[in-house]
Design a protein around this nucleic acid. Structure first.
Lengths: 353, 353
DNA sequence: CTGAAAGCGCTTACAG
DNA sequence: CTGAAAGCGCTTACAG
């Protein structure tokens, strides 16, 4: 439970004493309580080394005057800021927003702030810039979503700088304590199960760029599951896209020209699946009668297109919240795994004939 | 942890002098240059009161050792942080992301960081929380997108706390120096011109919630332009949505049941326009043959749906960048106005017969 | 369990 | 144009 929420009814400062027209400082609280500022500091930082009675006296005065410690002063003295950095290169707006929301959920009552740091792994100055950012801001912690989470150089840098971090990825790449695993192969497997259960035999797949671990994992889960059910996916029924609408369109156009034409396509994300819709329309292929389509992400887009899209849901907001919670409370136990699940909508049906 | 063992990145500074294993401070630079730290401080802060020769000597040493001042120390001493807050309540992910990108563009080379602050104007503690946030973080500045930009209490609070801010809104609500006006009535006008030029006479409109200034302005521009061309829009052809897909669907369902049925609908944003698509499908109304649809925002969605959507483009990323630039360089001249423009795609056509 | 001293790395306010 | 002193509001390191 959040720390700040268990105040005993006192939400607003009762007293409005003027401390030279400014907010009270730790010195004011110390003087008013009749203790040293070090003791007030201990109360602020929840040190157990304070007599219960003293603690309560201090807390009372703190609440009475609405004191909150200055983050910059604390940061300067303790050599650690109250900023959590989100370092990202994921181009999907929906993913970024959902993750931000989750992180903000978890930080809401902590006094920690979320700072955004887009980055480009391919840039020659990437590591230099990250070093200077993390070092300069003395980051409290960092959240690393894919695909930047897959960069071992960045993880090593963060360890060197002793900056706590959480890596979000489709498979475990690090110690369990710093990983949040989204198990994308399970999402791929569920897509396969669904299409196989519907009776599809001729199935295509458009993966994301295989340099992304997620693309690899989704494909692996999908192909393995089909294979386990005796359904083979020939190499030419597998295309590699780039997680964009345009790449989905281009790949689907090729797959739909194959003989026999696939009766179902699993796309590595919703954007590419929307590209499949467009290609199907161009080829006069009707969804879901002539072609079933499954996406991945369960983005807003999946319910805006027609027919509404069967897709794999990933609770990104929860992932963000889980990641930030770890940074906030590193000692308590945290779950490491997230499991995606299929959401069946109107873009999938049994094959014709 | 192994301290000075193995470095991962290549550090930029030529010299690698070890200052007790830490980064150099202003004192190190002062000592090495043979000046006082106050002079170094003046160089950092680009004070003109430094002899040209002295300045260059200092800059040389700074570059040589890769010195960058500590933001928390500067902040503590100057009572102002290096954080720019984006305070928002806009529920559209695409808008938020684009605005963030623009702000980050402008902050990239400044050393300022972007911190995110979602807020709820309707919450009883809204102002109290904003006060404590701005005061506590000693914000360098704040960017306020709609609809929170329309809150006069927040603007007054920011003025009281002497926190520089930029308000982004569809009309001017404040002194020009702190406004960025998106002229939404012009967008509405362009939508009207386009539909009128195509020959439509029976036209519907689904506005956003009229408590939003943008909704009001888009509607005003639209209706006025039509009226100027002798096209009247009866009250029952105007519906008020809430900028959501579902509200667009519900409103369109009502409008499409009217006799005579409108041959065109202008929706206050793309999400609602997508709802119109869905309602049209349900009613067996074909786009654009039986119904023309115009959206607003030019979001990614507008090119994913079929037929691709005619919509009004607003350069949100530029808006973000312009807003942040103002905070960074308050003295130089900045443009205050942004003009939306219509993007014609496949969802609009002349009316039948 | 509590506190006096020193200091984090800068800027302000003043003096020359 | 330049600098010595004081201080921003906290925590660390030490002592008792």
């Amino acid at each position: 439970m959040p720390r700040g929420s268990k105040k005993t009814g006192v939400s607003k400062p009762a007293a409005k004493a003027d401390f030279n027209g400014k907010r009270p400082t730790i010195n004011d609280i110390a003087r008013l309580t009749g203790v040293s500022k070090k003791t007030v500091s201990r109360v602020i930082n929840e040190s157990p080394l304070v007599h219960q009675e003293t603690r309560e006296k201090v807390k009372l005065i703190i609440a009475k005057y609405g004191f909150t410690p200055d983050p910059m002063a604390r940061g300067l003295a303790s050599r650690k800021s109250f900023l959590v950095g989100m370092i990202y290169d994921n181009p999907s707006p929906q993913y970024i927003i959902d993750l931000q929301r989750g992180i903000l959920d978890a930080l809401a009552t902590t006094g920690l702030q979320l700072v955004l740091r887009p980055a480009d792994r391919a840039h020659p100055e990437f590591l230099t810039e990250m070093r200077s950012f993390v070092e300069r801001q003395k980051l409290f912690g960092a959240v690393l979503p894919p695909s930047i989470s897959e960069d071992e150089r960045l993880a090593a840098l963060l360890r060197e700088l002793e900056c706590p971090y959480v890596r979000i990825a489709s498979v475990s790449l690090d110690e369990p304590g710093v990983m949040l695993v989204t198990n994308d192969h399970i999402g791929g497997r569920e897509a396969a199960q669904h299409l196989a259960d519907l009776g599809h035999k001729t199935i295509g797949h458009i993966s994301g760029p295989l340099s992304f671990r997620s693309a690899h994992e989704r494909r692996r889960g999908f192909i393995q599951e089909l294979s386990g059910r005796g359904i083979d996916v020939p190499a030419k029924y597998i295309a590699e896209g780039s997680y964009t609408f345009e790449s989905g369109y281009a790949c689907a156009t090729r797959l739909l020209a194959l003989k026999p034409r696939p009766t179902a396509i699993f796309a590595g994300n919703d954007e590419m699946a929307a590209g499949v819709y467009r290609a199907a329309r161009d080829a006069n292929v009707e969804l879901p009668r002539d072609l079933s389509v499954v996406g991945y992400d369960d983005s807003a887009l999946s319910t805006r297109v027609w027919p509404t899209m069967t897709t794999v849901h990933v609770p990104i907001r929860s992932v963000g919240s889980m990641a930030a919670s770890r940074l906030v409370r590193p000692t308590t136990h945290h779950s490491t795994e997230v499991v995606p699940n299929l959401v069946v909508r109107a873009s999938t049906a049994p094959p014709l004939g």
